[in-house]
């Protein structure tokens, strides 16, 4: 299993997490509508973003006749269900990730997963964990552009660059005293974005 990327400095922070669950045709229809609603009304996405241990969450429906074949010589599969793919990466340990997800986002989880065969509801989280364990697909390979960066690291770095560039552009003709004031202002605005980072 290789659910985290690794480079010469250590282990990446993002853990891959993929769950594939079967749905009936009716479920596919409902989930399609739900996903387009989530797409239009952003509140679920906003909450998911606030849960800053989630680099990425994605739901995809693949219908029973749409599974790709490597070549024409690969026989088409005769599947009895459509499949819901829950594709995500998270930072941190598996159990607490699922707990936090279920505690905070149980409504959208239940709405979308309800249509999957055998789904137990997000709360209590014990049966949900068992369900996920049964349907989780382990990764053979994972790639990460910045293995040493968590979601917070990336956000912090982007904001830091922004602020530093602003100071750089606006500080050209400043006297040393003014510059010190501006530098302090910069420092206080980015003070919680300066943690060390790198693979762990």
């Amino acid at each position: 299993m290789a659910d985290r990327a690794r480079n010469q400095y250590g282990l990446g922070k993002a853990v891959t997490f993929n769950v594939i669950t079967p749905m009936t045709r009716f479920g596919t229809l409902v989930v399609g509508v739900l996903l387009s609603i989530f797409d239009r009304f952003k509140s679920t996405q906003v909450t998911a973003k606030e849960l800053a241990f989630l680099p990425f969450v994605h739901w995809v429906v693949v219908k029973r006749d749409s599974f790709p074949r490597v070549s024409d010589s690969q026989p088409a599969e005769d599947l009895h269900y459509d499949y819901l793919f829950f594709l995500s990466t998270f930072n941190g340990p598996w159990g607490p990730y699922i707990e936090a997800f279920a505690d905070v986002l149980y409504k959208p989880l239940d709405l979308v997963w309800f249509w999957s065969v055998g789904y137990p509801f997000a709360r209590p989280v014990g049966p949900l964990k068992a369900y996920i364990q049964r349907n989780q697909i382990e990764s053979d390979h994972s790639y990460s552009a910045y293995p040493g960066a968590s979601v917070r690291d990336v956000r912090a770095a982007l904001e830091l660059r922004n602020e530093v560039e602003k100071l750089f552009q606006n500080s050209g003709g400043l006297s040393p005293e003014r510059f010190a004031v501006e530098f302090d202002r910069l420092l206080i605005s980015v003070q919680n974005k300066l943690g060390t980072f790198g693979p762990v």
Binding site: P93, P96, S150, D153, A156, N192, G195, T196, G198
Partner: peptide
Amino acid sequence: FDQFEFVQQKWMNFGDDFEQGND
């Protein structure tokens, strides 16, 4: 152990949850 080990690993020996990176 998602109590002690979590606190030890994620909160004592890592800083991400507190915007402190790896500190």
